[in-house]
Write a protein that binds this DNA or RNA. Sequence first.
DNA 1: CTGAATCCCCCAGGATACTG
DNA 2: CAGTATCCTGGGGGATTCAG
Lengths: 120, 120
Amino acid sequence: MAVLEKEIEAVKQCSTHYVLAVNDALNAISGKWKLPIIGCLLFGKQRFKELERNIDKITPRMLSKELKDLEMLGMVKRTVFDTIPVTVEYELTRSGKSLRKVLDAMMEWGVQHRRETMGR
Amino acid sequence: MAVLEKEIEAVKQCSTHYVLAVNDALNAISGKWKLPIIGCLLFGKQRFKELERNIDKITPRMLSKELKDLEMLGMVKRTVFDTIPVTVEYELTRSGKSLRKVLDAMMEWGVQHRRETMGR
DNA sequence: CTGAATCCCCCAGGATACTG
DNA sequence: CAGTATCCTGGGGGATTCAG
C-alpha cells in the first residue's frame, strides 16, 4: 500500500506529527508493567493467573489495570469462557504483535548503547 | 562487526535480557520532556534558551533536569563557552543520534496503529 | 479464578522566585 | 544567559481485603 508509505513520509516532515505518533507508541509501552506483559503475550495467549505467575512481583490489581489499559488501546484482546469458575484468555491483537518490530529496534539500540557507554 | 550481531541474536533468545535492553531504551525516552528535547536536538546543536523557546511550555527547572539526565545517560553532550555572559551548547552524542532508528520505528507503528484502531 | 474496592505513600513535575 | 532553590500537588503504583 503506497498510501501508507506516503503518510509516513509526510509525518517525517512535520516534527509535531512525528512527536505525536512516537508518543502513541510510547504510551502503549510506558509504565512499570506494560512491557513485561507484552513480552509474555508475545509467546502466545495466556490466562490471568498464568500472567500473574509469569510476571515477577505483579499484583492482581496492577495486572488487571494494565490489561484493561492495553485493551482500551487496542493492543490486547480479552476472551471470557463460561466455565466454572470462569477462565479468561488474553492475547495480542495485530497491532500488539506488530510492536515486536519496535521492541526489536529498542533492544538493538539498548545493546549497542551499553557497549558505547560502559566500555565493551 | 559480526560480534554485535551475535550478541543481538543471543539477547533475542533470552526474554530477561531482552526486556532489560528494551528498558534501557525506554528509560532514555520516557518522561514528559525527553522526547521533545531529543526531537529538537535532532535538528542540530542548540543552546539552553533556544531549547526553552522551541519546546512548548517547558520550564527552566525541567529543561535543566532533563538535560542533566540525558547527559548522564550518554545521550547528550554539553559544551560551555567562556563568553560573557556564558553560553552553553547541547548536542546529541552518537548514541543520541542513533535513537532516530528507534523513533522512526515507533512513529511508523503509531501511524499504522491509528489507522487500525480509529477507522480509515 | 478473575478481578473490584480501599487506603496510603512517594515522587515526577508545575509555579514562582532568586543567583552567578 | 543558564541555571538553582523552595514549595506544593496529582496520580502512579503498592498492600490488603472483599466479591461474583
